[in-house]
């Protein structure tokens, strides 16, 4: 049988998710708005709920310039350097 060359390319590398803290108490939580309309309302309410029901050390709000691209490297590094966990939304 004739050989056909592969038109695809896999870039998958085995990854593991990060270890989770036991709770959000004393943790820095970053709420990342991906800049889709309505996402700010979701994150506003999540911020209120976090303050009511958990005791995070701080809540940081960040926003991607556009939902249509991955976040710029500078923003990613800024977030990684300053937070314990991230909540991002809202993709629809």
């Amino acid at each position: 049988m004739t050989e056909y060359l592969d038109p695809t390319d896999s870039v998958a590398v085995p990854r593991k998710t990060a270890p989770r803290p036991a709770s959000l108490d004393g943790k820095v939580v970053t709420l990342l708005d991906i800049s889709k309309a309505q996402g700010n309302h979701l994150l506003d309410r999540l911020e209120e709920l976090l303050r009511e029901r958990a005791t995070p050390k701080a809540i940081i709000r960040k926003k991607k310039p556009t939902f249509a691209r991955p976040a710029p490297d500078v923003l990613r590094q800024e977030i990684v350097g300053a937070t314990d966990v991230v909540v991002e939304g809202l993709a629809d």
């Binding site: 049988m1 004739t2 050989e3 056909y4 060359l5 038109p7």
Partner: peptide, 24 residues
């Protein structure tokens, strides 16, 4: 061979829905 070539490339999911020329 021809029929196999066309069908096997469909089966791999690498076409746009139209038959493709087998990339030998």
């Amino acid at each position: 061979d021809l029929a196999h070539a066309i069908e096997s490339l469909y089966a791999r999911g690498v076409t746009d829905g139209l038959p493709v020329v087998p990339p030998t």
